[in-house]
Amino acid sequence: MNQTENILESSKELQDRKLMLEIVDLRKSFGDNHVLNGFNLELYEGENLVIMGKSGSGKSVMIKCLVGLMPADSGTIKVMGKDITKLNRVELDDTRTDIGFLFQGNALYDSMTVRENLEFPLRRHKAKFGIIEDTTPLVMEALESVGLAHTINLMPSELSGGMQKRIALARALILKPKIILYDEPTSGLDPITSKEIIELMRRVQKQYKTSSLIITHDVDCARVVSERMILLVDGTNYAEGTFAELASSEEEQVKAFFK
């Protein structure tokens, strides 16, 4: 079977799955700086999609538009069929319960304990799990899934960088989202901790059966977790394919990512 047939086969397989995220012709500018110039994306159920791009290529802007932290200039962003650009505040908040977000800098609330950090998203969305008074079982389940149940009463400042990343992942998982967005999950970590985080991402995906959108410029991370990749250059989809396909590309700009 040649490469083209492979791509057709895998694309047919994907299209049989449910579409979780869809971005069509996304554009965003800051004054004269056109960051996103018609970006497109499709994320299917259970899929791990990696987006790679240089710094300033629009990855973080794209992910912020995706969760409604930043308004897009134009384009469509559909999360499980709902166009988030047309939702009101309440509907948007409801939709956000299906999305877990792991921030590049973890964004743990530093004035709160680990328990309070994990309980925070439950404040508004407890109803998702029926009527519950005690949130401890949910907190413990999320902490156990990242192997840090013993840190429940610690403050974020008492944890190492890798542990903070895992707690941030536990917080992203607490509402049992269907989609997880990872913004540079291994940035700022040493190689061993990076490997642990990558392993954890894979384990979490199996346990929670989530679809993952991973923004990274870590080639090792992309190689291990990606089923499909998009290379983002100047705010547009420059190249798409599996890691192996892109890594073996002869095109200079694509090769530059894998050096």
Partner: peptide, 13 residues
């Protein structure tokens, strides 16, 4: 440190 963004994403105003 994006903590305000994290609150927004978690559905709290």
């Amino acid at each position: 440190t994006e903590q305000i963004d994290a609150m927004e994403v978690s559905g709290t105003n």
